[in-house]
Amino acid sequence: MSVFEMSRGTAGLVLTAAALAAPLAAGSAAHAVVTPTLQVAMTGSVLGVANTASVGCRQVAHATLKNPDGSPVSAGTVDFFSHLNGQAGNVVGSVPVNNGTAEISWLPDAPGTHVISAMYHDGGTDYQPVAGSITINAVNLGGACL
């Protein structure tokens, strides 16, 4: 059986090094992660109070991102998804955030209740990913876009 021995001077150096390293580790762990707000809106033909859209008519999904202090988020990406109630969803696309906004075109391809979702991420550790959605009722007007 072997016994590990350390001189008092060596022990002091080890403890000093550990004490100096602790604040550095604590400082990086204490990095605050920002949780922005995300609001999703839609513009396009026929949209109104009931959020109704025409099948086959161009709509634009808008994601607005703000920091907790109200300033616009300046970096990151928003991924947009479309999900028709009772059916599988699909990716609409990914758009970079520019001055707190990201927007993408979307065409409802079938009548029914669609949920358009937006998911924000910055690819780093500064911002917490957040998501939001809007529900759109698509109706078939025979290709008419009002």
Rank of each mutant, 00 (worst) to 15 (best):
G93K: 03
T125N: 15
S28C: 10
V130A: 04
L146Q: 08
V46P: 05
S105Q: 11
A19M: 12
G56M: 06
A110I: 01
G12K: 12
L13N: 11
P129A: 14
S94P: 14
A18D: 00
H83M: 08
V91D: 14
V92T: 01
P129L: 12
S117F: 07
T113E: 06
P72V: 04
V115L: 07
V55S: 05
A144I: 13
Q128S: 14
T10I: 03
L24F: 13
A11N: 04
H31D: 13
S7V: 04
K66V: 04
D79P: 00
A30L: 00
G76E: 11
L47E: 00
A75Y: 05
Q39M: 09
V115D: 11
M1N: 05
I116K: 06
R8W: 04
A19S: 06
A22R: 03
L146T: 10
A138H: 04
A53M: 05
I134H: 09
A29M: 08
V34C: 01
N140G: 09
T35F: 03
C57Y: 07
G124I: 02
D109N: 14
D69N: 10
V97G: 10
Q128L: 07
G86K: 07
N85S: 13
A21K: 06
L24W: 09
Q59P: 14
P108F: 01
N51Q: 14
S133W: 03
D126I: 09
S94C: 07
D122H: 11
S117P: 04
T135L: 13
D69P: 01
T37E: 09
P36R: 04
F81A: 15
A110C: 07
Q87G: 10
S94L: 01
L15T: 15
V139G: 15
V95I: 08
A131P: 01
H121L: 06
H62M: 06
T135G: 08
A118Y: 00
R8Y: 08
H62P: 11
